[in-house]
Design a protein around this nucleic acid. Sequence first.
DNA 1: CTGCTCATACGATAACCCTCGTACTACGAC
DNA 2: GTCGTAGTACGAGGGTTATCGTATGAGCAG
Lengths: 147, 147
Amino acid sequence: MGAPKHSPAFDEARADDEADEGAVMTTRTSRALDHPAREEIRLEGVLHAFSDPMRLLIVRALAAEAEAAQSCSVFDLPVSKSTLTHHFRVLRENGVINQIYRGTAKMNSLRRDDLDALFPGLLDSVLTAYASQSARIGDGRDQAAEG
Amino acid sequence: MGAPKHSPAFDEARADDEADEGAVMTTRTSRALDHPAREEIRLEGVLHAFSDPMRLLIVRALAAEAEAAQSCSVFDLPVSKSTLTHHFRVLRENGVINQIYRGTAKMNSLRRDDLDALFPGLLDSVLTAYASQSARIGDGRDQAAEG
DNA sequence: CTGCTCATACGATAACCCTCGTACTACGAC
DNA sequence: GTCGTAGTACGAGGGTTATCGTATGAGCAG
């Protein structure tokens, strides 16, 4: 699989678009994260990102709160923080999510516009399919009682 | 990936043909291949099966000739026979395709009914997305000349 | 400044995947 | 029976992934 390797190149901080009228504006989102451009997103990469149960969980949670980005820590997943960081990175590098720093937190949101533009219906199909499957067999979180 | 591990005692299908117990034997395809039942098909597995370029090629070819199953050898893929067998197995074990023996040949067909029933729209989304992406950047087969 | 929290980086480990070549079996034709 | 064709099994290689623990850096509250 020719997944994109981790490139050490970092873009300059161009996160100064949010004009802050507040008094406190010491430092805001100085670190930048590199996301693939819309044209760079590959179907295989997106499908690979979707093919992990943990990441499917994340995507579903993100889709449920599409209007508001969420920090990495609001997810109640049975993995360590390191693993979570890994999964978020996979999702970001494959163009599935957008991550921006906001103070110490990092807010995540689905790149719905890009995915819908590139692969119409795909994200919805996957989300619907996942919901349907979770209803059938549970998703390993709180559906443990199926007998 | 935490999805289905490969058990060491998995490939028992060939010895389990049970043809002697009054089987009708209308055809000589005594070798049986184990496919997951519809309820056994997992979304992660299907997405994983789709997340490989070679398998995407196979799925597209199968979808193009949906009415007729095709043997493994009609695919003109730049991989060895062993690798092809591997990919077909992944597709079969994840519920994407159906394989039946027909003499020395093995006919492959998409499990469209099952996939559509379980995950409505997913297969079409993937096929459409793949066609669209192939038109954009080529898939290494027939879109090589874009200039 | 010190401490705290969020998240990353860095190894490290174990498992997995894609690819291959070679040897083998199953089926049909001669 | 012998041969050829279609596909598998086995075992290996090289690379990737998922998971973890621990150490580190960035930002905020005292």
